[in-house]
Design a protein around this nucleic acid. Structure first.
Lengths: 154, 154
DNA sequence: GTGAAAATGAAAGTCAATTTCAAAAATAAG
DNA sequence: CTTATTTTTGAAATTGACTTTCATTTTCAC
């Protein structure tokens, strides 16, 4: 396999990782990876599977599942567990951490970061003599559109 | 059933709720409720079930499960889903919201509140035109004891 | 091309959560 | 108190998302 070690694009990082592990390249996996990385949104396995099938009806659920796990291990995707009990994956194009605003009406997910909150979290951890490895901050509510919809229906 | 409407203790609130729904009182359920509310800590169904069995070997898992769900519906317990995928319940003795510090070493859970963080969360929600209904903030890391333990073993 | 190794997908297995259902317990009615 | 009605119980079955298995297909190094 030819790997361009200078190209740091996400897809190449994936190929490089595969190379190190001795994986092979398959059309289906490549298609899944490209589709997912291009989408730039959160996907559950189910959602991704459904969309992919439109173009590639012979893709199996397990393959989508395994590909997402692979991407996660390679650091190209991040697995998130929100309140509905279904795991979602997001592409990682940038390194920095972010948190989520989740609309309980339509499922829209917005990412945000806030240095002050991060700082306050560290203050709290210090107070309780904790060394934090990770954190999770999720705000659940209604987005502007769903608020409007709700007002109409009541 | 005699319900003292003036007594606002947690157990009575539970009884009142039962009264409204036409439930019956059973020894087992009462025992579970009392035990849980007295404990003032986080319990998974499994943990609670194991402890209760020590005294009451004939209590079934389903009964513990159903009682915790009941308590949650009555507003006397709150269900939390941390990163290990096992639901935990905490008694609600006070109204105000709090967040969690969770030790990934020993499982210890510390509750905290921080007005500034809450305020910042509202600022963020406003920025994205969200109206938040709830939020979840969890800090994962090692408590002082587990840090010490780790240093010893390495 | 050929053969070794990896990828695939349907089906099976996990694991916690939840529900079912026949028997037991609690309460109501007589 | 005794029977009738309703709720509760617990063992077992089911659910739902996730994960693994295994026989077959595909990939790739030679």
């Amino acid at each position: 396999m030819k790997v361009n070690f200078k190209n740091k694009s996400a897809l190449d990082q994936f190929k490089l990782e595969k190379y190190k592990r001795g994986l092979k390249t398959s059309k289906k996996r490549s298609y899944i990876v490209q589709y997912f990385l291009a989408a730039d949104r959160h996907y559950s396995i189910e959602e991704l599977y459904d969309e992919l099938r439109a173009e590639h009806p012979r893709i199996g659920y397990s393959t989508v599942y395994r590909t997402m796990k692979l991407l996660t291990e390679c650091g190209l995707a991040s697995e998130r567990n929100f309140a509905d009990g279904v795991a979602r994956f997001e592409p990682i194009h940038r390194t920095h951490h972010h948190d989520h605003l989740i609309c309980t009406g339509c499922g829209k997910i917005i990412e945000f970061t806030n240095r002050n909150i991060e700082r306050l979290q560290q203050t709290i951890a210090r107070k309780y003599k904790f060394v934090t490895a990770s954190h999770k901050l999720e705000l659940y509510g209604l987005c502007a559109a769903c608020q409007k919809k709700k007002r109409k229906n009541s």
